[in-house]
């Protein structure tokens, strides 16, 4: 059983004996039945991978494998705009959000009697079903009767713009909606990370006379940097595939100027009934996706080496 598992696990990567030996796990390595346990623990995911990942990914790659599809894609005048939008969407959406999430995790870790309640409300966007939430944002931003412009009118007596009629405000609305929906989750993850920083490290720093800023730069930052970086990479991968916020908030408008690769792909696949072209649209993000995934893989292996 173990040999088949190992074979299964070696898919995609050559066996590298030196690396494996250099890493140290439990003191003295695994002994006796512990090997069997270790293999048994790896089995469930191996099974999931074999049965539910390899085939679909292979099928997907096959669907988008014809070079003619990419010729067709690049001929589409919308394509370049879409690529630029995707870069902006992912670049700004993810980094801005991660920075905010990091700051907010610092805010929430300080116990205040009322911060509990803020956290309760802060989590709500994440728990709200995406589809109605994004529709609500679409309506919220309506220039004619949307709540935002109504508030502007009632509070300041001004007529707000029609946000979704402009390229930049439309794109900002999509990015904002994406941040709104996912910020709570990443804040929680970073909050959990901060909680895991042993308090004695801070105590030791305090004994050494470190102030708040130095504690932050010498304890929090180095310990959190890895998690922060990893979360950023992961969310970039997620953001590249996200079509909901663009689809429901701006709908790609005005004049298809806020379309991202994921929505373009969905349109090809299900509006024009050309699923292969849809997959190709998403695959054209591979030059961006693959480095991200490789970086993630390296990050993960490095962190194992650190233990």
């Amino acid at each position: 059983m173990s040999s088949t598992t190992e074979q299964a696990l070696s898919v995609g990567r050559p066996f590298d004996a030196t690396r494996a030996r250099r890493r140290h796990g439990w003191f003295g390595g695994l002994q006796g039945s512990e090997h069997a346990w270790a293999v048994a623990f790896a089995l469930p995911y191996t099974a999931v991978f074999l049965f539910f990942v390899i085939y679909p990914i292979g099928y997907g790659l096959w669907m988008g494998s014809s070079p003619a599809l990419y010729q067709e894609l690049f001929d589409d005048p919308r394509y370049m705009t879409t690529v630029i939008n995707t870069l902006l969407y992912v670049g700004i959406g993810v980094n801005l959000k991660m920075f905010l999430a990091f700051m907010l995790s610092g805010f929430f870790i300080r116990k205040r009697w009322w911060s509990k309640f803020v956290l309760v409300l802060f989590i709500l966007p994440w728990a709200t079903p995406a589809l109605p939430a994004f529709m609500s944002i679409h309506w919220f931003l309506n220039g004619q009767w949307g709540m935002l412009n109504n508030m502007l009118f009632e509070l300041f007596g001004i007529d707000g713009p029609v946000y979704l009629n402009e390229h930049w405000t439309g794109l900002a609305a999509n990015v904002g909606a994406y941040i709104w929906k996912t910020l709570p989750f990443w804040t929680l993850i970073l909050l959990a990370g901060r909680m895991a920083v042993p308090t004695e490290l801070y105590e030791a720093a305090a004994v050494d006379g470190a102030g708040g800023l130095r504690k932050f730069t010498h304890v929090t930052l180095p310990l959190m940097a890895n998690l922060y970086f990893v979360c950023t990479l992961l969310d970039m991968v997620f953001a590249l595939g996200d079509f909901n916020s663009t689809f429901f908030v701006s709908g790609g408008g005005p004049a298809m100027s806020t379309e991202v690769l994921a929505t373009l792909g969905i349109r090809y696949a299900f509006t024009v009934a050309l699923p292969n072209l849809g997959v190709a649209a998403v695959m054209s993000a591979l030059p961006l996706l693959i480095p991200l995934v490789i970086l993630l893989m390296r990050k993960l292996r490095m962190s194992e080496g650190q233990l």
């Binding site: 309506n142 004619q144 029609v162």
Partner: peptide
């Protein structure tokens, strides 16, 4: 024409 019309989805015109 409502300024919004430039970015309407299929439900927006019905709602309006």
């Amino acid at each position: 024409v409502p300024p919004e019309a430039l970015s309407w989805n299929d439900a927006d015109d019905n709602n309006a």
